[in-house]
């Protein structure tokens, strides 16, 4: 019998430091056993339990896209005991991964539509996966608009990639920071205000919004104002998790478990749940 509590071994191939304070690091992992890699198929929006023996596990959204077959990417913000230990990893170290877990962004449904992606802070990980995936299948989608906010220019993830996306004519990227900073040429202001200002068209459009709870809380009313129907607005939720397979009872909102019913939900689905997401 397969045992989903047993992590598979992955090697840390490269580590990239994302910010000056070194609180955000991106780890590209490769499977130690190729057979594990063949079995591991995923979609944008799914997550894994990242395991360090003796230290524990933490769930992270997968930041790579399934179209990037050479590595699995996670970006980790140093906040708790496990993430602190993850930051001590060096290239060549072995880690454990369980997954892929959870559902994914409905990329099939999005086909033929315009997609507006709204992200904030270091929650941009699975949004990167989604964007890379859609750019690889560019002909399947209409206009792609990305609105990405961070506290300051240093706190954007994947800065080199963002610079490349800026140059593309098949993707519109709006970067915004909270307060003006010298030399910043992008937008200024919190994500909800920027969304209101840009007022993306609702026509044949789908929205994906993912970021810190406070950003989501204030962005959703703006999307409602702009008349995006709840069924066309998706978000990805986070909760403390352990098992990742709907057994340990920790990550529910209402009768839904983030780990198996989510993490991706439409606002329509969330509207039926009495507990606040």
């Amino acid at each position: 019998m397969s045992n989903t509590y047993i992590p598979v071994n992955m090697r840390v191939e490269t580590i990239a430091v994302e910010d000056k304070e070194k609180a955000l690091r991106t780890f590209d992992l490769v499977f130690v056993d190729e057979a594990d890699g063949k079995r591991f198929t995923y979609m944008p929006g799914q997550f894994c339990e990242f395991s360090l023996l003796g230290k524990g596990e933490s769930p992270f959204g997968i930041a790579s896209s399934p179209t990037e077959t050479d590595f699995l990417r996670f970006t980790v913000n140093r906040t708790g005991s496990v993430t602190n230990e993850i930051h001590y990893l060096r290239e060549g170290d072995t880690v454990g991964i369980r997954g892929p877990l959870g559902n994914w962004y409905p990329v099939e449904k999005f086909k033929g539509g315009n997609v507006v992606i709204i992200g904030g802070g270091f929650a941009f990980t699975t949004l990167r996966s989604l964007i890379v995936y859609m750019l690889e299948h560019r002909q399947d989608y209409g206009d792609l608009t990305v609105i990405y906010g961070a506290r300051n220019p240093d706190l954007f993830l994947y800065k080199d990639e963002l610079a490349q996306w800026q140059k593309r004519d098949d993707l519109t990227l709006h970067l915004t920071i909270d307060k003006p900073v010298e030399g910043w040429t992008g937008m200024t202001g919190f994500v909800p205000a920027v969304v209101r200002e840009l007022a993306p068209s609702t026509e044949n459009a789908w929205v994906v919004v993912c970021g810190p709870p406070i950003m989501i809380k204030f962005t959703l009313p703006v999307l409602a104002e702009l008349r995006f129907p709840d069924a066309r607005v998706y978000t990805s939720l986070e909760r403390r998790m352990k098992c990742g397979i709907g057994k340990c009872g920790r990550c529910n909102i209402g009768s839904k478990y983030i780990c198996i019913d989510g993490p991706v939900f439409s606002m329509e689905e969330l509207g039926e749940i009495p507990e606040t997401p």
Binding site: Y5, L53, K55, G56, T83, R240, K247, C248, G249
Partner: peptide, 30 residues
């Protein structure tokens, strides 16, 4: 239940242990 690692150095075990939604730490995030 909760999942915890018990061990010293490179040696130990991963266990699961009963937990309860009654405790504040059950859902407190990092």
């Amino acid at each position: 239940f909760d999942v915890q690692d018990e061990g010293k150095g490179g040696k130990g075990k991963r266990i699961r242990i009963w937990d309860s939604c009654m405790f504040p730490i059950f859902t407190r995030e990092a």
